[in-house]
Computed example of a mutant assay.
Amino acid sequence: MCSVFDVGNHADLERFLDSYGIRGAKHLIYGRRRRPTQQVSIVTARKGSPEIESAIWHLYLDRHGDTWRPHKKYWSINSNWKKLDSRPEYRKSRCLIPATAWVESQGGKNPVEFSYGVPFFFCGLYKTWGNLLSCSIITLDSHPATKCYHEKSLPMIAPAKDEFIKAWLNGGDKTADFTPYLNPMIEYSGKTLSVRPLAKATSTEYIGKVISMIEY
């Protein structure tokens, strides 16, 4: 379950977004250790072309007077891949979430930071609540090489392919086209996932060396 992620490397991220023709990079919300229920940046094409928008990182909200807040009964920062077919958002409101790293832990212990050394997109879902947007990150099964760090899941990373990015953002019911991507992978754009131990999940204090995952 991805519950903390980074949005760093300003210049690299701007170039990354520009390479896919995504507008609004100046509105990108940067920061390390982004946490659930905070405002984060997502990419949608709901207005016709891909652009950066802001969303609450918690898919289901609840009305409180004139405002919307994260729903207390439905913890929804992640959306499990096994339930995607039952979610209308999977067919109609898919998004991408720019990031540079994320943090996982095993039962809240031994946190580590995962990264590829370059920007990437989490695959996600979004919902609209009046003038607000909310989002979740799609999680897949864990990969054999990462189970010792988090035994249950690995976030879905969008492949670095123009055709995938366009198809994902365009919406539509042809979700079967994404089935091959619902398998956990630890390689992205020719780079292998790396992991580094942390003092705490929300800290930036490292306590060990970088370990490179090897595909097998």
Score class of each variant (00 low, 15 high):
residue 2 C to Q: 04
residue 3 S to C: 12
residue 4 V to C: 12
residue 7 V to I: 14
residue 9 N to A: 14
residue 16 F to N: 10
residue 21 G to M: 05
residue 21 G to R: 05
residue 22 I to K: 01
residue 23 R to S: 11
residue 24 G to T: 06
residue 25 A to F: 00
residue 25 A to K: 02
residue 27 H to E: 15
residue 28 L to W: 04
residue 28 L to S: 13
residue 30 Y to W: 15
residue 31 G to I: 05
residue 34 R to L: 06
residue 35 R to L: 15
residue 36 P to T: 05
residue 36 P to G: 07
residue 36 P to Q: 12
residue 38 Q to N: 10
residue 38 Q to A: 14
residue 38 Q to L: 10
residue 38 Q to D: 14
residue 40 V to C: 11
residue 46 R to P: 06
residue 46 R to L: 13
residue 48 G to T: 04
residue 48 G to A: 06
residue 51 E to Q: 01
residue 52 I to P: 02
residue 52 I to F: 02
residue 52 I to T: 05
residue 53 E to K: 03
residue 55 A to H: 01
residue 56 I to P: 06
residue 57 W to R: 04
residue 57 W to S: 00
residue 62 D to T: 10
residue 63 R to I: 09
residue 64 H to C: 13
residue 65 G to L: 02
residue 66 D to Q: 15
residue 69 R to L: 15
residue 73 K to H: 13
residue 73 K to L: 12
residue 74 Y to S: 12
residue 79 S to D: 02
residue 79 S to L: 11
residue 82 K to T: 14
residue 83 K to D: 10
residue 84 L to D: 05
residue 86 S to Q: 08
residue 88 P to V: 03
residue 89 E to G: 03
residue 90 Y to Q: 02
residue 91 R to P: 06
residue 92 K to H: 05
residue 96 L to Q: 00
residue 98 P to R: 08
residue 99 A to I: 03
residue 99 A to W: 00
residue 101 A to R: 03
residue 104 E to S: 09
residue 106 Q to T: 08
residue 107 G to E: 14
residue 108 G to P: 10
residue 115 S to H: 09
residue 115 S to Y: 09
residue 115 S to C: 15
residue 116 Y to F: 15
residue 119 P to C: 04
residue 120 F to E: 08
residue 121 F to N: 00
residue 130 G to L: 09
residue 131 N to C: 01
residue 134 S to R: 00
residue 138 I to K: 08
residue 141 D to M: 03
residue 144 P to F: 01
residue 145 A to M: 00
residue 148 C to G: 08
residue 149 Y to R: 02
residue 151 E to S: 09
residue 153 S to P: 07
residue 154 L to P: 01
residue 154 L to V: 07
residue 156 M to K: 04
residue 156 M to A: 05
residue 157 I to F: 11
residue 158 A to Q: 01
residue 159 P to M: 04
residue 160 A to D: 11
residue 161 K to T: 13
residue 162 D to R: 05
residue 165 I to R: 00
residue 166 K to V: 14
residue 166 K to N: 14
residue 166 K to F: 12
residue 167 A to L: 00
residue 168 W to G: 03
residue 175 T to C: 09
residue 176 A to M: 10
residue 179 T to A: 11
residue 182 L to M: 15
residue 185 M to W: 08
residue 187 E to Y: 03
residue 190 G to E: 07
residue 191 K to F: 06
residue 192 T to W: 08
residue 198 L to D: 05
residue 200 K to I: 12
residue 202 T to A: 14
residue 203 S to P: 07
residue 204 T to C: 09
residue 207 I to E: 10
residue 209 K to D: 14
residue 209 K to P: 13
residue 210 V to I: 03
residue 211 I to Q: 11
residue 213 M to E: 03
residue 213 M to R: 10
residue 215 E to Y: 14
